[in-house]
Amino acid sequence: MKIITWFGILTLDDSGKVVEWDMLSKDTGALAERLVQPKETNMAIPPAGFDLRTAAIECGFVGSTGEYNTLLRDVSIRAAKKQISGGTPDMGIIQAVEALDDIDDAANSLSERLAEWYGMYFPEVGLSSEPLARFVAKYGSRSNVSPDDRLYEKATSSMGAELTGLDEELVRGFAENICTLYDSRSRIEEYLIKSMETTAPNLVNIAGALIGARLVSMAGGLEKLARFPSSTIQVIGANRALFKHLRARAPSPKHGIIFNHPQIKNSPWWQRGKIARALAAKISLAVRMDVYSGNGLNESLKTELDAKIESIKAAHPKPPKRESKGGSVKGKGRSQNKQQNNKSGGRR
């Protein structure tokens, strides 16, 4: 019987004794390579209780147990480093998507603070989030607002306190910091769009770069996404609704993050589920093309999808009639404000 070990191929006789050996060279790099991906994938593993260490010494691979330890340690550290260093482009995409979310969180809470803070000095400004940050970073105190700015009138007649000296410096610096966050956000978005177009052109073509990136991030990688069935892709990001459906009697979610696709978002509610199903089906095909075929962009998917969506829209131009109001409402989990739910995304 031939068995595979990290230092070579051994041939054992029936009693488990080593009768023949084929040692590898004592090169750490090559051994590490073999450790991760043995060439002989169909060969047997050492039988339970086989003494690898003694075999290595008897075959003359190493001189002592000390050498065995040192060499095995070096090799396996090298192999492990190699295994975790797989920096594929989709890993960069995942980090970028998460960074985008972190920036949104941070920018939102800082913007709220700025709105409160600056409101002391110019309550009539009527701006929020990015425009406010840009405005404060540009002018600081409202006495600096230039006459051609559309807020000039309001600024001169404001009931707010005067913003001067150290206070102005602080508020303005704070606003500048928020602006750099927004700048960095748009740079990350550009990166995502570019990176997605090169790594997953078909996915971008069907789902759009940002939704595509989000799908990749939630699946944990492009290849993992390619292995998902389209029914899973349809509801990625609707975890709460999905588990509520599986656990209780709640209705199944129609769409996860693909809801943000304009074709779904801008369609009337009774078509959304059908369109989401068609879209998810094409997305899963697109990702598989990107991962497994590598032939670049294939336009036929997009035309098929458009045709499918057209036919859905043609077949269901009007909302379905409800046979009895009571029965229909009973089926819905949170029925009181169903219309609103579709908008706000409680159940997607």
């Binding site: 330890n69 340690r73 396996s76 550290i77 192999a79 492990a80 480093k81 975790i84």
Partner: peptide, 16 residues
Amino acid sequence: DLIGLCDVRPNIIPIL
């Protein structure tokens, strides 16, 4: 993190 540990200690064999 584990590899960082293995780097300074002589008797740990990391296996992913």
